[in-house]
């Protein structure tokens, strides 16, 4: 264990260990967690820095934003997006590279790879040897919006279809961000404060969340564990043979509270 991962703080305890399924959301609140660069530059292919372009009032950027806002309104007016989330805290402890999760009295194990060079990090380092807790979440923007996008694409509305697909992906990411925020509040890591809708996602917080398939936890097979303990089938998110989620606009994550948790490559 490196200095970074020592447990020199009081372990937080979540205010509930119940499994929470949430189907009723205010979409504008979710969208306030969207990162603009992710939506406009990565998903929608805008070819310059979107923030600078907004400041410079670049017509292309403004036209694109207008399209996005129009479609957001349409999503709300016509109820086109059925977002859903399931999340839960579990008691757990870590030994070496493994995290042992207490799932209804039986132990479920997640094994993570460790870096082969200094600082030899492994995700299990972010969990204490005893009496710790960990969170899991699965969220989705639902298949309805993607089906709708497909439909209008066939009718020839290519641009709107493309933007709606991008918005669906961005919404699932934003929802993950929002649920993660909620979970930090439940852990007592943050006070609940009123956020304005144009605030953008919180930038600094305690802990971190990781999705399987990314560098710190590359094993997609471990998605099975999440499906075992969270049962995201209830919110209509299923896994393919290579453990990817359907619908596409879904996010699964494992949530740590450790203040030094960061992203690293194996």
């Amino acid at each position: 264990m490196t200095d970074d991962t020592k447990m020199e703080f009081e372990l937080p305890i979540p205010n509930t260990f119940e499994r929470i399924v949430k189907l009723d959301f205010n979409l504008r609140e979710i969208w306030s967690y969207i990162r603009l660069t992710f939506l406009y530059q990565k998903l929608l292919g805008y070819n310059k820095n979107i923030r600078a372009s907004i400041i410079n009032k670049e017509p292309k950027a403004l036209a694109l934003i207008e399209d996005v806002e129009r479609l957001k309104n349409q999503i709300i007016d016509e109820n086109l997006m059925q977002v859903k989330a399931v999340y839960q805290f579990f008691k757990c402890h870590a030994i070496n590279n493994e995290i042992f999760i207490d799932f209804n009295g039986k132990e479920v194990v997640l094994n993570f790879p460790r870096q082969e060079n200094d600082p030899f990090l492994c995700l299990s380092d972010y969990v204490a040897k005893s009496n710790d807790t960990i969170g899991f979440l699965v969220v989705t923007a639902g298949h309805e919006i993607l089906d709708y996008a497909k439909k209008i694409e066939l009718e020839g509305s290519y641009k709107d279809a493309f933007i709606l697909q991008g918005l669906a992906i961005a919404t699932s990411e934003a929802l993950a961000e929002m649920i993660h925020h909620q979970m930090r509040i439940m852990w007592g890591l943050e006070e609940k404060v009123e956020r304005s809708y144009d605030a953008g996602p919180p930038r600094k917080y305690l802990g971190n969340r990781y999705s399987f398939g990314y560098p710190s936890c590359p094993n997609m097979e471990d998605q099975e564990v999440i499906w075992q303990i969270l049962q995201p089938e209830e919110i209509e998110v299923t896994l393919t043979e290579s453990y990817m989620m359907i619908p596409e606009a879904s996010v699964s994550a494992i949530v740590f509270h450790h203040p030094n948790a960061k992203y690293f490559n194996i």
Binding site: G45, Y46, D67, G156, Y158, K159, F162
Partner: peptide
Amino acid sequence: QAKMIVTEVLQSAEVVKLAIS
């Protein structure tokens, strides 16, 4: 030449689709 962005290309494609249909 980076003078058009993806969504604009799609809009052009929409015009072509309309024309072809």
